[in-house]
């Protein structure tokens, strides 16, 4: 057996197995790299760019970059966290994120990551887009106002559920959105089920089970108890 290979993450040696990404190795070592579109069960998507790190001085997405021996990775530096905060602010102003009236509040990865990075304001002017909700399904509500285009529902439906209920389509900020796999474009006209993996994958408050809103009291929700930086490496 050859010697364990390592790389440096914020000056700490991190062991890794060949083929692992920087993100995977960091998580295994209990090190938090902020992320939104990455999920350990699925292929890295590399779109949110929250996990941007500096590898030997160059920017890269830690969820897609393979770990290699001897590289130096900067993660929680002031420069990178500043950029991450800006990216979060961009996601907040791109959609309509009204946390007080969102039932995902307290269990939302976008919100918890923003807390963790100390995002005190959206900074930019809001776009306030018009994104109608889809309540056509008997058991599930889709509120696209909160969509951050991470594509986890697309992957979950295709790979875990073998259904392909969702696709990410359109172009640019005005066009890009979740496309539903029915001619009407309505979820109610698909074979989507509340028991699908895709029904519980959304990191934000787009895919919501009906009749269970606000079930957990304030103070006891997922990220009330511990910050994202703890929760996301513990699971």
């Amino acid at each position: 057996m050859s010697e364990q290979q390592t790389f440096l993450l914020d000056n700490e040696e991190i062991p890794f197995n060949p083929g692992e990404t920087i993100m995977q190795a960091a998580k295994a070592a209990g090190k938090y790299i902020p992320h939104l579109c990455w999920h350990p069960e699925f292929k890295p998507h590399g779109s949110c760019k929250l996990c941007t790190v500096k590898v030997n001085g160059r920017f890269g997405s830690s969820c897609t970059m393979q770990a290699t021996a001897g590289i130096t990775v900067e993660n929680r530096t002031t420069e990178l966290d500043d950029k991450r905060r800006t990216l979060l602010q961009m996601l907040f102003i791109e959609g309509n994120h009204f946390c007080p009236s969102c039932e995902k509040s307290g269990n939302c990865l976008l919100q918890a990551t923003a807390y963790d990075l100390g995002m005190m304001s959206p900074h930019f002017d809001h776009f306030y887009p018009d994104r109608p909700v889809d309540a056509s399904h008997p058991d599930v509500l889709l509120d696209f106002n909160r969509c951050i285009l991470c594509s986890l529902c697309v992957q979950a439906s295709e790979l875990a559920d073998k259904k392909f209920v969702f696709n990410m389509g359109g172009r640019g900020m005005r066009g890009r959105k979740i496309i539903i796999n029915s001619e009407s474009g309505k979820l109610g006209d698909t074979n989507f089920s509340v028991d699908d993996r895709a029904a519980s994958i959304c990191p934000v408050g787009v895919i919501l089970k009906k009749r269970v809103g606000f079930a957990v009291p304030y103070g006891e929700r997922k990220y009330d108890k511990a910050p994202a930086s703890v929760v996301e490496v513990a699971k």
């Binding site: 929250l50 961009m90 996601l91 102003i93 640019g172 066009g175 890009r176």
Partner: peptide, 20 residues
């Protein structure tokens, strides 16, 4: 802003912010 594919956050939102 018109041609950004919209895949990644910095380009998708950034090109719109810059245009604005």
């Amino acid at each position: 802003a018109h041609e950004s594919c919209g895949f990644c956050t910095p380009c998708r939102v950034g090109t719109q912010i810059v245009a604005r």
